[in-house]
Every structure is written in structure tokens, then in C-alpha cells.
């Protein structure tokens, strides 16, 4: 074998090994492959092509909503709930990269840090790196990696959104959109965009003034609309149930296709 051919063969072998390690759930490999995909290193997409997801597919849940509405805090609660149900959990937490410098302060996981050394939980922060639409450039690829690593539940946190960052709809099975009391009147609840595409609407910080009227306005137009107080875990069991119902319908549609 020529030197170049041998080099190609060893690289090929390396890619196969990496793919196997991802599918065996090796955290270091999962993390490194996601880095390659974020950095658009060719070997990353070579590994990606070899990945296969388990027959029992992960539940993919998108959490979106306004900046500061409590997405990370709610995810922290969802991790706890799903772990208690015996599931492993993967999280992709997207935050904005600076359009000026490319730098970012990715701070979503601060709220989730007590899950950091739970081996059944994998949390990855991603900068948008110029991507519009609420997700990072490599979020879809990273999702495939976590699916192949056989996490039972995958939670994707979008950046804090306005009204038009709805890429999550094409990626998650269930989209949960968070709003908070005091963000607008009954006409806001009629508008197109985020609230229109969400499967489940949540009024978080639901112990604040104005929560009742926010719920009333939204319920005129949408269903289901739930109330949560994420910092206290209130409303989380109801949300888990609503997500499960939505997932059941999603799975039925998949099977009948």
C-alpha cells in the first residue's frame, strides 16, 4: 500500500471508530464530534454519515420563548423530571454569538449545573455563529449525534426569540413556547409567528401579576396553554403530561406514514 493510501485507510478506520464510540454513548467522543461539526471540519461530517439512531427514537423537545422568560430554568426542571422517570437526557442550549466579534457568553447551563456530573445527562452550549432562525449552525447535526448516542429525551433550547425565529419547528417533535405575564394584551395573543407555531404554550413566572389575564387571552386562541412557575417546579408535571400527549400523536403519525 502506498503511503497516501495507508494514510487514507487509517483515517477511515479512525472515522469508523469514532462513530462506534458515539453510538456506544462515549461522552468525550460525542463532545468532540459536535465540535468538528460546529467547526465544519470534514471528518465531522464523515462520522455523521456513519451514525445510526436506535429504533426507539429519542423524544425531541424544543423550548423557545422570549429572552428572560425562564427557558433554562424550565429545562433544569424538565431534566430532573425526566431523570426521575428513568430517562437519559441530552440538552442543546443555544445562545447568541456576537455578530461583531464572533465571541459569545454561553450562560444557559448555569441554571442546570447541578446536573453537570450526572452521567445520564449531557449538556452542550452552542453559539449561533451567524445562523439566523433561533438555532446554531450545527444544531441539527448535533441533534443527530445525540440521537445516535441514544439519549431518551433531547431538549433543545433556542436563543431568546422575538416573533420570527421558528427554525425549531422543523427540528423538534414538540415545541414548547414560553411567555410571561405582562407582555401584551389580547391582540398580542392573536398575532402570527411564535405563538402560532408552538404545540404547547406556557405562561411561565405564573405567580406574577397579570398571569391570569395572560392565560385568559392566550386560551381564547390556543390550546393547550399551561401555567408554570419554573423556579419552584410548579406546573412541571402538567407540562410533562402535555409533552407526552403531543409525542404520542407525533409517533402515531410517523408509524402510519
Amino acid at each position: 500500500m502506498s503511503e497516501a493510501a495507508a494514510d487514507r485507510a487509517s483515517k477511515r478506520e479512525n472515522v469508523v471508530t469514532m462513530a462506534k464510540q458515539v453510538m456506544a454513548g462515549d461522552v468525550r467522543t460525542v463532545a468532540r464530534v459536535i465540535t468538528w461539526l460546529e467547526n465544519q471540519v470534514p471528518v465531522g461530517s464523515a462520522v455523521l454519515k456513519l451514525l445510526r439512531s436506535p429504533v426507539q427514537r429519542a423524544m425531541v423537545i424544543g423550548i423557545t420563548g422570549y429572552p428572560g422568560s425562564g427557558k433554562s430554568t424550565l429545562i433544569d426542571q424538565l431534566i430532573t423530571a425526566y431523570r426521575r422517570l428513568g430517562n437519559t437526557v441530552g440538552v442543546l442550549a443555544v445562545d447568541i454569538s456576537s455578530p461583531l466579534t464572533g465571541g459569545a457568553v454561553l450562560g444557559d447551563r448555569i441554571r442546570m449545573q447541578h446536573h453537570a456530573d450526572d452521567p445520564g445527562v449531557y449538556i452542550r452550549s452552542m453559539g449561533t455563529r451567524g445562523q439566523q432562525g433561533g438555532l446554531a449552525r450545527a444544531t441539527r447535526d448535533a441533534l443527530q449525534v445525540l440521537e445516535a448516542a441514544a439519549y431518551d429525551v433531547i431538549l433543545i433550547e433556542t436563543i431568546g426569540v422575538g416573533q420570527n425565529e421558528i427554525d425549531i419547528v422543523a427540528v423538534a417533535h414538540t415545541v414548547v413556547a414560553l411567555t410571561t405575564p405582562g407582555l401584551g394584551d389580547d391582540i398580542q395573543a392573536m398575532k402570527a409567528g411564535l405563538v402560532e407555531v408552538a404545540d404547547i404554550l406556557v405562561v411561565n413566572q405564573g405567580d406574577r401579576d397579570g398571569a391570569d389575564s395572560a392565560l385568559r387571552h392566550l386560551r381564547e386562541w390556543h390550546t393547550p396553554v399551561l401555567r408554570t412557575v419554573a423556579v419552584k417546579g410548579e406546573g412541571v408535571p402538567e407540562l410533562i403530561a402535555a409533552i407526552a400527549e403531543r409525542q404520542r400523536v407525533h409517533d402515531l403519525v410517523q408509524v402510519s406514514r
Binding site: 454569538s97 456576537s98 464572533g102 465571541g103 457568553v105 454561553l106 447551563r109 448555569i110
Partner: peptide, 15 residues
């Protein structure tokens, strides 16, 4: 963290 962000670094801030 802020200065590094301004220098183009991706900071994962744990608190």
C-alpha cells in the same frame, strides 16, 4: 468573560 467575548472567544460560563 466579557473581555474574552469581545475578543471573539466562546465562553461557557458556569457561574
Amino acid at each position: 468573560a466579557r473581555a474574552l467575548r469581545d475578543a471573539g472567544v466562546e465562553i461557557i460560563y458556569t457561574g
